[in-house]
Write a protein that binds this DNA or RNA. Structure first.
Length: 860
RNA sequence: GCCCGGAUGGUGAAAUCGGCAGACACAGCGGACUUAAAAUCCGCAGGCCCUAACCGGCCGUGGGGGUUCAAGUCCCCCUCCGGGCACCA
């Protein structure tokens, strides 16, 4: 405990008659108890309420058990917005829930022998208590959603069955990312620089496994094109998603392999993918990925090739695992086989090269050294020829490789003279007509692997029929009927770190009957990726208690799209791309009308300390509980909004929190000092005295400023600065107030409005002052104040006068002074005169903008 | 390599449409109150120069150029920092 607090407590006890000492430890829990007793306090109204709707959403937390400062900031932003919009007359939906499945619960189970469910629910209770202590205005009663409970995850299963029906969920064996520490598969999105997203030091291995996939690639084009029509999303996020989807348009062309002795002619063709079919006359070799099927075949009968290929595969694997795939030295080996260029009839040698990736495009390329840098490097190394087939105007002899596309074809048969762009179209079409190719598009985006070999997740509602039945082979996969849902996750399961799902060791779970033939069946023992849970939770919020369906479509259509989504940029790809995918699937199922989940997205900056992200290993973690204990929830959350604009990183400085706390104490002293006067005040505010006029003017300027900064700019830091300025002015006017120079009605207007302005940022203090000042109902249910432009108007304005663009003096004039008067006054100013001596005036500019006036004298 | 951000006092930042750079705070310094300290209140505070002090002058928003009566803000070039993608054919 710091000294200040100890002293404070002692003194406030000794001086019980001095009510103006700010003590958040007393005020905040008192209001918290009141609010907690009404779980529907912040409930949204029905669609029929007639107000415009506003869906304010913050990303749901993983229930680790402890809120961190990033949460506090994220939720302080959302809460200020929700409170503001409520006061502005909107019907606000402000929900909260728990992303409650996931690996940490299993790790905790291993460590302390606590069942994951118990551990998770305990953490939720803890974090909910923290949130309540901070005073966030969530509609707990109406929206709270916990993804690890069957009431929620049964709908994951339901969606999964719908996706199976629609061909959007399928099973295949594939090479997958495997994290040995998680002992499970990772989605591509969960691999960062070759390492696990949860274990930054752990290199991800590649394993071959049977997995469930969701066909997100079916929506690749829509996911990509939609980004162009999302002005409410940050450009950064849209760019990241564009890169991630990685669409590249080009063509596939078949190069027939020249038959070896004893082989039939024209039997085997190599499909290459190229974005530059216009350069095909310049192809001088074909390059295959080491894992290409043909390579495997040829390697069988060619031990030397086999060895070379094996070492390349090992090399690629190692490079991929360390994230160095882009830096490995290019090399390759000739197979001795030839392929025929369908455009020229030329025979090209077929090579295997370590820079060709099996999982992109077709795993085969045509190598055009003259017009591709990588091919050029490779060809130079092995003495393969370069053949120029493209040249820019006046650049016929430009050095190779020549990459430009604003050029025309040369030495390309009948295509010679065509522009690259035209040739790309026409040559692809030609290939298609002749049956040896077509236009095609490839994506970096892969289907979403959702199987996890873990216990603490949603069971996948599929079984394997052991005997088989009509249309299903023995061991074949059968979807469960909807009536079999939910497939409950068994409790009392022993968690092991070994590979494979722990569910496979639970006989009661594993063994079941086939829903079609009634014969014995085994359940799928993998569970779903937790990103499934978070892909649609915000729809459930709109109708969280619905026992019959994931949500009522009509209700969802009222609330969606989300008006404002707020969260960290670290979810720019994973969660935000899956959510968009899920929304489109639900739209196609006819459940909703919107194609995108959120109208606007805001990504707040990180909370840092000593210039680095807070982390246990760096020892720079600031605990929210600690801050609240020292300075109160109001000061803590207000500092999180004041110290930086919300999109920037925020450096946590405890002295700053103390500063906000001092400010709140000043407000409290001011409010309580005049509370009785305010309570008893009657009549209308009036600008009787000069002080009253000045105060009212400041008040209305402040209302205008805060309203504007809040809704148009999201600059909460300047909103709070404006409140501070107002408080400073009222404090400075205290002698006047005490002399009775301002009517009690005017004073009441000042202090009540100040309280309303403070309400979105410091809800506890605002509630307390509002009550002490005799306000009716709760402060957050009040209407947001409106600025009176007339009262806000300045009577006298200050006009800076510049000479040659340099400030010389500031003159004061009545607000209505016209241009002639301003010119005259500026020339009459002594300091200006001094500057003008022996000079000629070239121009005498009077600038008049809404932001203010300015004079500039241009002299020679 | 490509793409997206960012750089302003000792610190966090402000300047919304091209118009007084540094609002509002933090830290600091000086003063009042106090036996003392804390708290609170009042004041000072970008840098340099001139001055005993005032008065005053010059410079200043990562660097260089440009447009303009006027540039932190617009244009061109560059540096550094953060983030994303990357032998993606």
């Amino acid at each position: 405990m710091d000294q200040a607090r100890t002293w404070d407590a002692a003194k406030s006890g000794a001086e019980r008659n001095e009510p103006q000492r700010y003590n958040p430890d007393e005020i905040e829990p008192r209001w918290q108890a009141r609010w907690d007793a009404q779980p529907d306090l912040y409930a949204a109204e029905p669609a029929t309420c007639g107000k415009p709707k506003f869906y304010c959403l913050e990303m749901l937390p993983y229930p680790s058990g402890q809120l961190h400062m990033g949460h506090v900031r994220n939720y302080a932003i959302g809460d200020a917005l929700a409170r503001f919009m409520r006061m502005r007359g909107y019907n606000v939906l402000h929900p909260m829930g728990w992303d409650a499945f996931g690996l940490p619960a299993e790790n905790a189970a291993l460590k302390n022998n606590t069942p994951p469910r118990e551990w998770t629910l305990k953490n939720i209770a803890q974090m909910k208590a923290q949130m309540s202590r901070i005073g966030y205005s969530y509609d707990w009663a109406g929206t709270e959603t916990t993804t690890c409970l069957p009431e929620y995850y049964r709908w994951n299963q339901w969606f999964f069955l719908k996706m199976v029906e629609r061909g959007l969920a399928y099973r295949k064996s594939s090479k997958v990312n495997w994290c040995p520490q998680c002992a499970t598969v990772l989605a591509n999105e969960q691999v960062v620089a070759g390492c696990c997203w949860r274990h930054e030091e752990q290199i991800v291995e590649q394993r071959e496994l049977e997995q469930w996939f969701l066909r997100i690639t079916r929506y690749a084009d829509e996911l990509l094109d939609g980004l162009n029509e999302m002005p409410g999303w940050p450009e950064k996020v849209r760019t990241m998603q564009r890169n991630w989807i990685g669409r590249s348009e080009g063509a596939e062309v078949d190069f027939v392999v020249a038959p070896a002795l004893g082989e039939q002619a024209g039997k085997v063709a190599i499909k290459v993918f190229t974005t530059r079919i216009d350069t095909i006359f310049g192809a001088t070799s074909i390059q295959l990925a080491p894992e290409h099927v043909l390579v495997k075949e040829w390697a069988k009968i060619d031990p030397a090739l086999s060895r070379a290929v094996a070492s390349m595969i090992a090399e690629q694997k190692a490079a991929r695992e360390t994230g160095d795939i882009g830096n490995i030295e290019k090399h390759g080996v000739a197979t001795g086989r030839m392929a025929i260029n369908p455009f020229t009839g030329e025979r090209l040698p077929i090579w295997v090269a370590n820079y060709i990736l099996a999982d992109y495009g077709t795993g085969a390329i045509m190598s055009v050294p003259a017009h591709d840098e990588r091919d050029f490097d490779f060809a130079s190394k092995y003495g393969l020829p370069e053949k120029r087939v493209v040249a820019g105007a006046g650049e016929e002899d430009a050095p190779l490789p020549y990459i430009g596309e604003d050029a025309v074809l040369v030495d390309s048969g009948e295509w010679t003279g065509q522009s690259c762009a035209a040739a790309q179209e026409k040559m692809a079409l030609f290939a298609q007509q002749r049956g040896f190719g077509k236009k095609t598009t490839t994506y970096r985006l892969k289907d979403w692997g959702v199987s996890r070999q873990r216990y603490w997740g949603t069971p996948i509602p599929m079984v394997y029929c052991e005997r088989g039945h009509e249309g299903v082979e023995p061991g074949g996969v059968v979807p469960l009927p909807e009536s079999a849902l939910p497939v409950l996750l068994p409790e009392q399961v022993e968690i092991t770190q070994a590979g494979g799902s722990p569910l496979a060791w639970v006989p009661e779970f594993l063994h079941t009957t086939c829903p079609v033939c009634g014969g014995p069946a085994r359940r799928e023992t993998d569970t779903m990726d937790t990103f499934v849970d978070s892909s649609w939770y915000f729809y459930r919020y709109a109708d969280a208690k619905n026992p019959f369906q994931p949500f009522d479509p009509q209700t969802a259509n009222y609330w969606f799209p989300i008006d404002q989504y707020i969260g960290g940029v670290e979810h720019a790809i994973l969660h935000l791309i899956y959510s968009r995918f899920w929304t489109k699937v639900m739209r196609d199922m006819g459940m909703i009308r919107n194609s995108e989940p959120a109208e606007r997205l805001f990504t707040q900056g990180m909370v840092i300390k000593d210039g680095a992200k807070m982390s246990k290993s760096k020892g720079n973690v600031v605990s929210p509980d600690d801050m609240i204990a020292r300075y109160g929830a109001d000061a803590t959350r207000m500092y999180a909004l004041f110290a930086a604009p919300p999109d920037r990183d925020l450096e946590w400085q405890e002295e700053g929190v103390a500063g906000i706390s001092r400010f709140l104490a000043r407000v409290y002293r001011l409010g309580t000092k005049y509370a009785e006067t305010v309570r008893k005040a009657t009549g209308r505010p009036e600008a009787g005295s000069e002080t009253a006029q000045r105060l009212l003017r400041s008040l209305h300027q402040t209302i205008a400023k805060i309203t504007e900064d809040f809704q148009a700019r999201w600059h909460f830091n300047t909103c709070i600065a404006a409140i501070m300025i107002l408080v400073n002015e009222i404090t400075a006017a205290e002698p006047s107030l005490d002399r009775g120079e301002v009517s009690s009605a005017t004073l009441a207007e000042m202090l009540r409005t100040l309280t309303l302005l403070l309400a979105p940022f410091a809800p506890f203090l605002a509630a307390e002052l509002w009550q002490q000042m005799g306000g009716s109902r709760q402060v957050f249910a009040q209407a947001w104040p409106t600025a009176d432009a007339e009262l806000a108007k300045e009577h006298e304005i200050e006009i800076p006068v510049q000479v040659n663009g340099k400030l010389v003096n500031v003159i004061k004039l009545p607000a209505q002074a016209d241009e002639a008067a301003i010119k005259a006054a500026s020339l009459a100013d002594e300091r200006v005169k001094a500057r003008l001596a022996d000079k000629t005036i070239v121009k005498h500019l009077v600038i008049d903008k809404t932001s203010g006036k300015l004079v500039n004298l241009v002299v020679k």
